[in-house]
């Protein structure tokens, strides 16, 4: 047992060294965006989503894109809640055409303040990446820069974005298109699939849920959780096991009249 402890401690020390060598932004609370659940934080290098570096989000399958989008917007809501300044959301028109555009009242119900959100819509991938970089390089303190692009990311682009995000430690999440994964310099990559939502005792939808897989995590561990978004408390929660009712068992349709 003591030997294992030392092993864990040694790994931790090595990780710290790695982080130092890689030149990731200085530690402290501002370098991380707290997500909520400790279970998830334990897998991440710090107490939350690393800031000043690229975080990728991808959908499990093409038709789970809205779920991945919801996860991205949950991150955005978290950032807007804990950091001052506006947020920039860059959307490539093709992503928008497929599943629609962010809807103001929906954003409000998601716990997000549309008044502090600037939406940038671009026609192609190149413009979207340019806009992301431009926002990151601007001296404005942004709560978050988020993006949704239809195309993929290669190593060069992701490193450019990383470099642009580092000086001001701006949180950066990018919802990637459903294309084969190339190598990228992202700190974390999440893969999101939708899951039946949590419901209140009367069967109405209460909180959306996703199966979130942390596929890649620099200086951390991978993991997989069933996560739900609490839009009122502005936090993600990990749902334990299958304690909740399975949605299909209920004869839910009878409820409605």
């Amino acid at each position: 047992m003591p030997r294992q402890l030392t092993k864990a401690a040694r790994i931790k020390a090595l990780r710290c060294d790695l982080a130092r060598l890689e030149g990731t932004p200085k530690g402290g609370s501002s370098a991380h965006l707290p997500l909520g659940p400790d279970e998830v934080h334990a897998h991440l290098p710090g107490p939350g989503l690393p800031c000043g570096t690229l975080n990728e989000i991808a959908a499990e399958a093409y038709d789970h894109t809205p779920a991945a989008f919801g996860f991205t917007l949950a991150m955005l809501a978290l950032a807007l809640h804990s950091r001052p300044g506006p947020a920039v959301l860059v959307l490539q028109a093709r992503c928008r055409m497929d599943f629609g555009a962010p809807y103001g009242h929906g954003l409000v119900q998601w716990g997000l303040d549309p008044g502090r959100l600037v939406i940038v819509e671009t026609r192609n991938n190149k413009d979207a990446l340019w806009a992301l970089e431009e926002a990151l390089r601007s001296p404005v303190h942004l709560a978050m820069v988020a993006g949704a692009v239809a195309g993929g990311l290669d190593l060069t682009i992701s490193r450019r974005l990383n470099l642009a995000a580092t000086p001001r430690a701006t949180p950066l999440v990018l919802l990637r298109g459903f294309v084969p994964v190339g190598t990228s310099a992202a700190a974390t990559r999440w893969r999101i699939a939708s899951a039946p939502a949590a419901r209140d005792p009367f069967g109405t939808f209460a909180r959306p849920r996703w199966t979130a897989t942390l596929e890649r995590c620099r200086n951390g561990r991978t993991g997989k959780w069933l996560i739900e978004w609490d839009h009122v408390a502005h936090r993600l929660c990990v749902v334990e096991g299958v304690a909740d009712r399975a949605p299909v068992e209920r004869a839910s349709l009878q409820r409605i009249s």
């Binding site: 549309p114 819509e121 340019w130 303190h141």
Partner: peptide
């Protein structure tokens, strides 16, 4: 002072000039 309105205006300007005025938008109820 990162929260200065001028810097934000400049960012919006730059985005609007390259992408078009209506590409950089805000939602209003």
């Amino acid at each position: 002072d990162g929260a200065s309105p001028e810097e934000l205006a400049r960012l919006i300007d730059r985005l609007q000039q390259r992408l078009g005025r209506h590409a950089v938008r805000q939602l209003h109820p």
